[in-house]
Design a protein around this nucleic acid. Sequence first.
DNA 1: TTGACTGCAAACGATTTGCAATTGC
DNA 2: GCAATTGCAAATCGTTTGCAGTCAA
Lengths: 149, 149
Amino acid sequence: MPSASRKKLTQQMELFNYSCRAAGLKITHQRTLIYRELLQQPDHPTAEALHKRIVREVPSISLDTVYRTLATLEQHGLVNRIQTAESQARFEAVIAPHHHLICSCCKKVLDVEWPEFDHIELPENVRNWGTINSKNAVMYGTCTACAST
Amino acid sequence: MPSASRKKLTQQMELFNYSCRAAGLKITHQRTLIYRELLQQPDHPTAEALHKRIVREVPSISLDTVYRTLATLEQHGLVNRIQTAESQARFEAVIAPHHHLICSCCKKVLDVEWPEFDHIELPENVRNWGTINSKNAVMYGTCTACAST
DNA sequence: TTGACTGCAAACGATTTGCAATTGC
DNA sequence: GCAATTGCAAATCGTTTGCAGTCAA
């Protein structure tokens, strides 16, 4: 790993530790492993995929803990759960607002920024509905890799 | 039911029959019931909710059939599956492009039109990713009903 | 020390599936 | 009549939970 990204990772982990303390969460070995792995994986892994990777380093970690940790971190806004039409949920570390591009074929999820979307006004009738906390765009299609096969 | 909407329903059911035939799907009593119920329910029911309602009319229909039918209709683009962070999937008859407003509290899903969104250009980097078939916006918030309690 | 966290195993709930009977075309 | 579809029951799969031991603070 280039030293620049290693440094960034360290910073993000420090922020994670800080957020945990602020939320009253203990900083356990497992939580650290899970969050670090999530930061390093750009591919929105499922709980199972995450577990498989971490087990290589720490064979004793259990899948339940991965699930439980992700749920806890999600509750505290440190992790996002992405529900697609697939059976399994996917996760990502919360970094910056962005949107998702999902390949209907291989189910891979790609992050995209879309400032034009972030800035447009909400539809009118939303106002009397209540308060919006977040809005998100999801695009479905076929990626070039799948299209070429 | 006012006669106008009854007439509309009949039209939609005729379209359904037509689409089934076009897709090579047999028009069974159960499929008709399920699709009609879905058309009449504006609240994006879950498979179970749908089943509960239909059982009143036809006690012999099984939950499996509801699941199977929804999956079949979804494959043929007659029904949309809406996956939220909830455990259960919700369904809607495909009518016109629209977007979703989800209350984080009561989990109810409301349809909204949002032509401004439909018309904005896709983010740039999407073009080299592949082909987009559809795009959809989801907004999360708290509805006034939940906020007032 | 002490309550939060973990691993284990068992439970859970939504959805799917194999099979024999039934039904639409 | 034949293939598609259904109902039934059992299986599956992702995820959650109870409990006793362990660990961070």
